[in-house]
């Protein structure tokens, strides 16, 4: 396999293999909070932040677990780190912006069970990324997640004005849009390969 440049890692995580549209990670918040543009952007920001912290921590934990030869603890320690980071972000947002705190509602603590974050930690371990690479990978994944969320939110805001049959309204419609977006993102395949 060829050497991956940092730029390629970023492109790969954000566009080519977008976490939401190609790996199906983080679908729950994707369907849940994508109704409004403003909430979507902030949710994206919060998730990106948690991703970066937990990705850096996961790198450290992996090194430690390899040193003490206990790979079966990997999953448990990752999830603990993610849960505590989310708790931290929750306290931070509650203090800084109570309005945003209410807007995100139940989806804020649910970032813990956002598969995109645990998926990121597991993928970077499988790929054997180093410290800087992990950081860039998390940044790309966060950017990709936010991009997908904002795109869907924009489309859904427009669709609120359209006359949609009752049966299609809700999740089914969002999934159809997501499918079309996913097709569009396939156009990015091959980007960045020399």
């Amino acid at each position: 396999m060829k050497e991956e440049t940092l730029w390629y890692i970023f492109l790969n995580a954000s566009l080519i293999n977008n976490f939401v549209l190609a790996y199906f990670l983080g679908i729950c918040p994707f369907l849940g909070v994508s109704g409004k543009m403003e909430t979507a952007t902030k949710m994206g920001g919060a998730v990106t932040f948690v991703m970066i912290i937990s990705s850096v921590c996961a790198y450290g934990i992996h090194a430690l677990l390899v040193a003490v030869n206990a790979p079966f603890l990997q999953l448990i320690s990752y999830i603990v780190v993610i849960a505590s980071t989310v708790q931290l972000v929750e306290m931070f947002i509650k203090k800084m912006s109570p309005t945003l705190f209410r807007a995100l509602g139940i989806f804020l603590p649910l970032i813990t069970t956002n598969c995109a974050i645990l998926g990121l930690a597991l993928f970077q371990t499988n790929k054997g990324y180093g410290f800087v690479e992990s950081f860039v990978y998390a940044l790309g994944a966060g950017a990709g997640f936010t991009l997908a969320l904002v795109l869907i939110a924009g489309l859904r805001e427009q669709l609120n004005l359209a006359d949609v049959p009752n049966v299609v309204k809700g999740t089914a419609l969002t999934l159809l849009i997501a499918g079309i977006l996913s097709l569009t993102f396939m156009g990015f395949a091959g980007l960045g390969s020399q």
Binding site: A22, Y23, L175, L176, A178, G179, S182, L183
Partner: peptide, 9 residues
Amino acid sequence: PAGGFFTLA
């Protein structure tokens, strides 16, 4: 991936 979204929808 797109097929997954469509089928579920």
